[in-house]
Structures are given as structure tokens and as C-alpha cells.
Design a protein around this nucleic acid. Structure first.
Length: 271
DNA sequence: AGAGGTACCTGGCAGC
DNA sequence: TGCTGCCAGGTACCTC
């Protein structure tokens, strides 16, 4: 479910509720997520004060003075801030209990998410160590993309979805950014000019920023921490619009499958 | 090294 | 109504 904007929206939604708060415990109903939730989540993390919640790529980092809980929402994970008396529903796998009244509840039907404990610098954790730059940072730009793409034959869509190249660009926003930059998603990454990469980098930043500004994309079930949906769905230009007319040139939007992921583009104006 | 496929897991939906 | 098969927003890991 969540891409970078949805994870950032989640982070912003939960942080005011948990920053500076001491955990009164952690309840784990289902330990088998992508990897088993380690015991330290209860024995160590479950007693700490959460100093802040940061985001790196699509990972949420709950910083404490003795370590960091690393959370990933996978394809279907979501976090809600709720009252301690709210009964858990199916797929409500983990509760972070704060004080006497408040729970941060992780729901993840497909269990592709993760919750891990790290006592060293989390950015050096094997999962985070090799991530490319944050797309909204200054080190991510057209020059960087053009440099990394040199000689690569992989399709540009797979290239920008590679987390070692740039962190956190998922399927929806990859499709949208390529449309915005008028680049064909199947084009080989090494055969795109520096000028077009400048446009693509700008498009990735713009698409992500706009999505964050309106609360992310709610396709079927994404809700913010307060339970309200995001409104970027109505801004999508090509994703989930196969067969409709392209808003730029009027051609029919096409949907193909690329590396088992659906690719939406306009054959008229993306080249 | 780079590219491509597979695996993890469940729910929802289309089609029969 | 009920079954089957396919699809889904992610990404580590395997092989070629």
C-alpha cells in the first residue's frame, strides 16, 4: 500500500502522539511478519521513551536512547493512533502502548511489513545501508540520475524503482513521474539525455511533494493515522487510468506489465 | 555487475 | 451463491 508519501504522511500523523512519550509495553499478537519480530521489541524497546520518529526511504525509525525500532509497512501496513480500549481486529498484529490511554496499532493483512530492533546506528543497518539518496534531498537531481544510468540497459521505470538508485519511489509515483517527464517507461536507462533526466528528477520531486501535500494516495485502503483518506488519487494522470484519454495528448492510456508490476503510460506523448 | 525471476501473505474482485 | 484465478501500493534474495 504505502509509498514514500504515504509513509511520510503516517510519520507526520503519529509523531505528535508519540514524541517524548514513554512506552508502557508492546503487545504482539502475530510475530511472523516479513521477519519474526525480535523479542527485544518487547524487552528493550517496550520500556523506552520515543525521542522522535524519522523516515528513511519507506522505513519508519522510532528513536530511543538505547536503540531504534525499524518499521516497514510493506504493501498493506498501516498505523493508527487509538484509545487503549479499542478491541483489536483481524490483522492488528502489534500495539505500541503509550501511557495508560493511547495505543499505536499496526495492522498489516499481507504481513509484508517488518518491525526490527537495532542498537547501533540504524542507517548502518543492512536494510538501510545501501539505499540511494532521498528523492526530496538535494543530492538527488538530474546529474545524479544521468551519472548512475550510464551504460545501463534496464528499463528506466525499473531503474527509478531500484532503491539503491533512489529510495522510496514505488510503482504509482514511478508511473506518474515518467508521464510528467514524457519519458517512455520501457526506454533503456542508459539511453536518456541528461536534460531529460533533469526533467525526470524534477518530476519525481514534484509528484512526491504534491502527494504529501494532499495526504497521499488512497487506492483501496490507505488511511492516515487519524483514519482519514488521502486525496492524491484524483491527481493521478496515468496510474489506474488504462483506456482513458491522455490528459496531455488524448491518446488512449495503455497498461502493460513490467517485472510483474503494472505500468501505465501514454504511447502518444511518452517516448 | 547487471538483469530478471521468485518468494513472502491475504483480501478483493471478475468471471464462470 | 460459490468456486477459481488473478491482481495488488514492497523488496530481499536467488540464479543466470
Amino acid at each position: 500500500m504505502p509509498e514514500l508519501p504515504e509513509v511520510e504522511i503516517t510519520r507526520r500523523g503519529i509523531e505528535p502522539h508519540v514524541r517524548g512519550q514513554r512506552l508502557a509495553g508492546v503487545v504482539i499478537r502475530q510475530r511472523q511478519l516479513r521477519w519474526p519480530v525480535p523479542r527485544e521489541i518487547e524487552s528493550r524497546f517496550g520500556k523506552q521513551v520515543v525521542e522522535c520518529v524519522r523516515r528513511r526511504a519507506k522505513y519508519l525509525l522510532f528513536h530511543t536512547c538505547s536503540g531504534t525500532a525499524i518499521m516497514h509497512l510493506g504493501m498493506s501496513g498501516s498505523l493508527r493512533v487509538i484509545n487503549v480500549n479499542t478491541p483489536p481486529q483481524l490483522h492488528d498484529h502489534v500495539d505500541l502502548v503509550f501511557g495508560r490511554h493511547k495505543i499505536l496499532r499496526l495492522r498489516d493483512p499481507r504481513r509484508f511489513g517488518a518491525l526490527l530492533w537495532c542498537e547501533r546506528d540504524p542507517l548502518e543497518h543492512p536494510l538501510l545501508k545501501h539505499l540511494g539518496p532521498e528523492p526530496l534531498s538535494e543530492t538527488f537531481n538530474g546529474d545524479y540520475l544521468a551519472r548512475m544510468a550510464r551504460g545501463r540497459k534496464v528499463a528506466v521505470k525499473a531503474f527509478i524503482m531500484n532503491s539503491r538508485i533512489v529510495a522510496g519511489v514505488g510503482n504509482i509515483y514511478a508511473n506518474e513521474a515518467l508521464f510528467s517527464a514524457a519519458i517512455h517507461p520501457h526506454r533503456a536507462a542508459g539511453r536518456i539525455s541528461a536534460a531529460r533526466y533533469q526533467r525526470l528528477a524534477d518530476a519525481i520531486k514534484a509528484v512526491l511533494q504534491e502527494a504529501i501535500a494532499v495526504g497521499g494516495t488512497t487506492l483501496r485502503d490507505f488511511l492516515r493515522a487519524d483514519g482519514t483518506p488521502g486525496y492524491f488519487r484524483s491527481e493521478l494522470q496515468v496510474y489506474a487510468r488504462a483506456g482513458e484519454a491522455c490528459p496531455r495528448c488524448g491518446h488512449k492510456i495503455r497498461c502493460t506489465v513490467q517485472g510483474q508490476r503494472s505500468t501505465h503510460y501514454c504511447p502518444g506523448c511518452q517516448h
